[in-house]
Amino acid sequence: MEIRVGFFRGLNVGGKNKLSMTDLKQIFLDLDFADVQTQGNTGIILYCQKDSKNKLTDNQIATEVFNQTAVATQYISMSFDELSFLMEHLPDWWNENTDWRHNVILLLENYPSNNIMTNLPSLDSSIEKVAVVNNTILWSSAFSDRSLYYKSQYRQLIKHEAYPLMTIRNANSLSKLYNQASLLYNEKKSSSTL
């Protein structure tokens, strides 16, 4: 049994693509996933994959959600091991400055992070820092001072050709998800179902 975490792009944002997490959870249960949990109304989901032989792809899951709800969305998932690797390789500056916004950028459809990173102008490290871990971009930027935020390259991401292939979560959501997944992992390990 494999623990996985998933991220839907664009659910429940700005009053669009509304989908209750109760309904989403039921779809995952109907797909024969176990121990399904959601995180608030964020489109973040945690579950166990029972059978690795019949593993659904991320696109198949997004299609199934659309087929059952008519809500068009995109989806990316990772294993608990991949999430743990990400958490173990966070840069020293991550989530350190409380006046900054700390975002995790997950890239859909295997879009390569280097296509974003190589096209960036030089970053001003006094207002933002970026690191990449396994194609996941960790981006911290000044936020409380709006004039600095408007100078940041992070603000320009919305104009990037890859923006429709990004789903972005903050550091607190990532930390909460990791804690939630770790609890499930330890529970499964103690009952020897991993």
Rank of each mutant, 00 (worst) to 15 (best):
A171G: 05
C48D: 05
I44D: 08
N95G: 03
W93Y: 14
F85K: 08
F7V: 06
L83S: 02
E82F: 13
N54K: 09
K53G: 07
K16H: 12
S190A: 12
D51G: 12
Q26Y: 10
A131M: 05
S84H: 05
A70Q: 09
K129E: 12
M87T: 04
D99F: 01
E96I: 09
L46T: 01
D99K: 04
P164Y: 10
A181R: 01
T167Y: 02
S79H: 06
F28N: 03
L177W: 07
Y185E: 11
L29K: 09
I137M: 15
A171R: 02
H89W: 08
M117P: 00
Y47G: 04
I61D: 04
R9L: 07
V65W: 13
Q156V: 00
K50E: 12
L31K: 02
E128D: 10
K189L: 14
Q39K: 04
D51P: 03
Q49D: 06
N170M: 06
D35N: 15
D32M: 11
V71S: 11
V133F: 02
K129N: 12
D23A: 14
L24G: 09
N67A: 15
E2V: 01
S192R: 07
A131Q: 11
E64C: 09
L11P: 03
P164L: 03
R4D: 06
M117K: 13
L46K: 00
V13S: 07
R146H: 15
V71Q: 09
V5T: 10
L123E: 08
N114A: 07
Y111C: 08
I127M: 11
L184D: 08
A70P: 01
G15P: 05
Q49T: 08
Q74I: 00
L56F: 10
S52N: 12
L90A: 14
A70D: 11
